[in-house]
Write a protein that binds this DNA or RNA. Structure first.
Lengths: 342, 342
DNA sequence: TTGAAAGCGCTACCAA
DNA sequence: TTGGTAGCGCTTTCAA
């Protein structure tokens, strides 16, 4: 187990040819005889040769590595996005290295440094929620490393970004509820200082305006994002003198909590109260009634981010890459909790 | 953006000292003056120097990379395990590279090759369900790459393995149900050709034997692992002349399906029918009644696997590493669906 | 305490 | 079609 791994020199010596010939044969160089290529391949196989990417990378100035930074790997949205990234990049011959920011800016910055040391060719990131400054990404860019941001992005930063259109999503969801015949929609939101919630609320308001309805501030509850909070918020809304007949919850977990509150009050869903969630968490199909929600396309976001990096990598020398912001339009998933009431 | 990245030679020239001095200063060599070290650090900072791990790695024969292979990244159990791995390994200065086998042996084998080319120092894997042959891992071992298997392992292979004790888990769960006062426990299992299900069934049987109860084959339903299958299986059991008063489902999704069937029959849970799941999926706390289940400690498994690799890496030259199999004892999570009935 | 030089394994240029 | 050679950026003896 301590014997040295075979190198192209070993193969060369074994075959009585030069290392450079072996190298060319292995990389399928056009002006190498087929015969030599075959023989080299055979001997390599025989000696158990494995190419050393670090040597190749050092020589070529390319590592074949792409770094991915997310707040937490195990959060469903992110792990699914990572899957989407790996599917595309793995296919293209890149390996992906992952790092967690734990939602802390300083860890995110440190991770960028780790990646730069590792000579990654690109970094795909969803930033920590309090990251304001983008100098670490600018540093990466200055090092010739491509950067793509997804979901949680820095709009001002001039790099490719993939995000979903929260405003549009909320618009669609709100319209759907009205279309189903619900007349008064309560809204339960997470912290409105977070941009996505803010945008979703705006979408909700926009529909009210468009359809000539009054915006009633009392129908909005802002809370933190736990199940319990969703329950309390819904209770508060349902216990009003004129309770809403539909609840648009800006996260699925909030929706679940809300469903508990509604159920406790003996109201039937979706007949008496319609419920709409947001994010398409795993459990939404499992609850009963199954929860209508908004698909954030996490896997597709990963795919898009990966393709964006690939494009940049391939465009390399054509200095004309123009950073683009892709806004994916989320899809409504209409399930039992918001159906038919007309 | 196309300007060459600074190297230690640049720093050396800039300071009028030798590259080797710079190298030593940066790696905190004991016989370098503090003064030089400080100055080097300052100039490095100033020039925006980033160490090139590929060069270091090539020189030292170490990449600082650990490869992780799982069937799918986005499956909760695995992404949580990966988090556990990253937490430990990132801390120790390693970067983790991830690859998916898509539960196919040939992809798994290919991924090992990719990792060997990348010169990973270790591989942590949970194998594809139909992987029988372990020659790809043996090849890695022969290349001096450490291997640790977790959850889905190859018992015959002589490497560190981390798994959970399914037999023990099922034993505890079954006992718990009897202790709560349920008298007849139906069991809904996934494919029994898969070892974990088999072992869980064995645990169930063992408790019957220990407590002097008859094993009734009719109380066992083997099915695939979808929600619908769980529902059907439960329906089949509940519609018997002498239906069980508790259902031990060997996966949480099966349990969820079973709950639907029970609810449709107007039976109250947990009063009339107790339900026990397995795996502690996210949604188990969200359903109502909340689902009692078995925690598989995915994150801890990741921690343990990472520590095992670290141990081997550190033991390196002390040729006396003895592969060990760690069996984690899962924990019962008693929630509403199986409570109090005495 | 610092410097010179060799070399990790590979590729790419130029020459043969 | 093949070989010789230099060098990617770093570390590590050995010498000064």
């Amino acid at each position: 187990m301590k014997k040295r791994k075979p190198t192209i020199v070993d193969i060369a010596n074994y075959m009585g040819i030069s290392p450079s010939a072996v190298s060319k044969a292995m990389s399928n160089h056009p002006r190498m005889s087929e015969k030599t290529k075959k023989e080299v391949a055979k001997v390599a196989e025989q000696l158990g040769y494995q190419r050393n990417n670090m040597a190749t990378g050092l020589r070529k100035g390319k590592s074949g590595l792409i770094g991915v930074i997310v707040p937490y790997i195990h959060v469903n949205f992110f792990s699914t996005a990572i899957k989407g990234i790996e599917d595309v990049l793995g296919q293209a011959g890149y390996s992906i290295v992952i790092g967690q920011s734990k939602d802390e800016t300083n860890k995110e910055v440190a991770q960028v440094d780790v990646f730069l040391n590792a000579q990654v060719e690109g970094i795909i990131a969803s930033i920590a929620s309090n990251t304001k400054d983008s100098s670490h990404f600018i540093k990466a860019l200055a090092n010739g490393v491509k950067v793509v941001l997804f979901d949680r992005t820095i709009p001002e930063l001039d790099v490719d970004q993939i995000m979903i259109d929260d405003f549009d999503a909320a618009t669609k969801a709100t319209k759907h509820l009205f279309d189903q015949g619900y007349g008064k929609i309560g809204l339960i939101s997470g912290p409105l200082e977070l941009l996505p919630y803010k945008r979703r609320l705006d979408g909700y308001k926009a529909v009210l305006a468009q359809t000539g309805r009054e915006f009633d501030e009392n129908l909005i509850v802002e809370t933190d994002i736990s199940l319990e909070s969703g329950k309390k918020a819904a209770a508060q809304l349902m216990d009003r003198k004129n309770p809403p007949d539909a609840l648009f919850c800006l996260s699925d977990v909030l929706a679940l909590g809300a469903m508990n509150a509604v159920r406790e009050r003996g109201k039937k869903m979706p007949e008496e109260v319609g419920i709409m969630g947001f994010s398409n968490e795993n459990f939404t199909t499992y609850v009963s009634p199954s929860l209508s929600t908004v698909d954030q396309f996490s896997e597709q976001m990963g795919n898009h981010a990966a393709k964006a990096i690939l494009n940049q990598l391939r465009a390399e020398e054509s200095h004309n890459h123009v950073p683009s912001k892709q806004v994916l339009s989320p899809k409504l998933l209409i399930r039992e909790s918001s159906k038919i009431r007309k």
